[in-house]
Amino acid sequence: MDDERIGPTKNVRETERLHSHFVTREQQEDAATLGMWVFLATEVLFFGAIFMGYTYVRWSYPGVVEEASRHLEIVLGSINTGVLLTSSFIMAAGVLLAEQGRHRAAALALAVTALMGVVFLVIKGTEYSMVIGEGYLPGFTAQLEPVSRPGGGYYGALSEGGGPVPGHEELFFWLYFVMTGLHALHVAIGVILLAGLAWLLRKPQGISLNTVRNTGLYWHFVDLVWVFLFPLLYLAGHRL
C-alpha cells in the first residue's frame, strides 16, 4: 500500500502515499525491510530450538536416527527439495521482473511460486500418509490407553504394558513430524501471501515493490529451513 508502485510510469514516486509518521519513502521502505530481517531472526531462533532438540537425539542415538531415517520417503523428499528450490528461483525472477516494472510477468511468477508451494504441500501430505500407513506415527503405533497419574489422569500416553519403542525410533519420527509440520505451516502461510500479492500485481499500481521484495525474503527463508531439514532428516541414514 506504500512505497514504490510497480508500473511503466516514471513518476511513481510522486504519486506515492506515505504513512504520516514517516518523513521519506526511503525511510519507510528501509523500516519495512529491516523489520522483515528482524522477524526472520526470530524465526531462526524459533527453529533453532528444535534443531537443538534434533542435535540432542542424533548425538544420543546416532544409530537409531540413521536406521529410522532410512524409512522416510527419500524419493518424495528429494522431489520436494527440487520443487522448493525451483520455486525460490522463480520467486527471485519475480522480484527482478517487478523491479523492471513488468507487473504482469511478475504476477505470473509469484502465482507459479505459490503453485509450487501447493505442490510441495501435496507431496508432503502424500508422504505423511505413507509414513503413517507404515505405522510410524509416534504415539499411535502402540495402543493408546488412558493412564492415571498422580495429580489427575490424562490420555495419550503410551500404555504401561506397551511401553516406548526400545530403540527410541519414535523420537526420531516425532521430530520428523514436528519439524516438517512447522515448516509446512510456514510454507502454507507463504502460499497465501504469494497468492494475494500475485492477485494485486495484476494491476500496474497494485502493490509496492518493497512488499514483493520482503515477501521474497520470507519465501527464501522458508526454503532455507528446508535445505537444512532435508539432509538432517532424509539423508542421515544414507551413504554414498
Binding site: 526470530t42 524465526e43 531462533l45 524459533f46 527453529f47 533453532g48 530450538a49 528444535i50 532438540g53 540432542y56 537425539v57 509416534p138 504415539g139 493408546l144 490424562y154 495419550g156 500416553a157 503410551l158 519414535e170 523420537l171 516425532w174 521430530l175 514436528v178
Partner: peptide
C-alpha cells in the same frame, strides 16, 4: 522469546501426543 515459544510448543505436543523429547 522464540526459543520460549518452541519450548512451550514442545510441552504442549508432549501432552497431546504422549511422545516427548
Amino acid at each position: 522469546t522464540p526459543v520460549l515459544a518452541m519450548v512451550l510448543f514442545l510441552i504442549a505436543m508432549e501432552r497431546f501426543w504422549g511422545i516427548g523429547i
